[in-house]
Design a protein around this nucleic acid. Sequence first.
DNA 1: TATTGTTATACTCTATAACTATA
DNA 2: TATAGTTATAGAGTATAACAATA
Lengths: 143, 143
Amino acid sequence: MQERTVRFGPLSGYVGYALRRAQLWSVAAYLSAMKEVDLRPTQFSVLILINENPGIRPTEICAALGLQKANFVPLLNELERRALVVRHAGVPDRRSSALHLTPEGKALHERALQLHENWENLVVERLGADGREQLLALLQKLT
Amino acid sequence: MQERTVRFGPLSGYVGYALRRAQLWSVAAYLSAMKEVDLRPTQFSVLILINENPGIRPTEICAALGLQKANFVPLLNELERRALVVRHAGVPDRRSSALHLTPEGKALHERALQLHENWENLVVERLGADGREQLLALLQKLT
DNA sequence: TATTGTTATACTCTATAACTATA
DNA sequence: TATAGTTATAGAGTATAACAATA
């Protein structure tokens, strides 16, 4: 291959481009750190929400996480197939179901929290604790 | 719907989650701002790289942007179909092609740069010029 | 042999419309 | 009539394997 130093031009200074590259790195590092529990980012988020809000209903989770309800169905089916989550009959509204973690789900959730700390530590290694807090504050301010 | 304040628990403090939400907002705002030129983020990046590096070859673009060469083919086909980019015969290596912007491509590239400034201004509105620089530096340090 | 561009393919994520059963 | 969950489907984005032409 002919040697050439590719010029990025204005791309280097774009927040959108930097966000995209950071997000790609983030997901790759997350998947590596969470391999043991085999939870995709959205699955992990859902377990956290059910743990924090026992009996929460699918619509509430979708609204909180910005998911389409249609896409939530197979995700929840998979968590139920793995016996991490149960759908209890909705009372009094029988259209909706109340979601709870099973004992296995609670255990995996706890382990996932531990593993996720390793991921956050990667960020601290690169940015320092202060840099991590700054980044978090800026990202939250953005959205 | 039953009223309930969903508790996010530790999710609120995760850099990975904040990055994901920021990226979703970023892409939505980008698409809105760039509607006139109808360029996806990757297409825009490719136009910038060709403009900055006339005669650049597909493999170099893929390496610079982290794209799979197989996925670059249809992307480039579309840019050529829109008469924004031309593939010139590779010299001396006839396996590869030298990419250049057409006059139409240069014009659209210029317009896209202008529109993209509106996007960056959104970030400045939310974070201030200093905040934007801080965010950019932190994201680049992360990757 | 190795590399460039290409084709084919598959998997994930996301988005929309329409259906059912309940309210 | 409106809503919760579901089904089906389609579009992006991303990944790997294999091939032809060329080095």
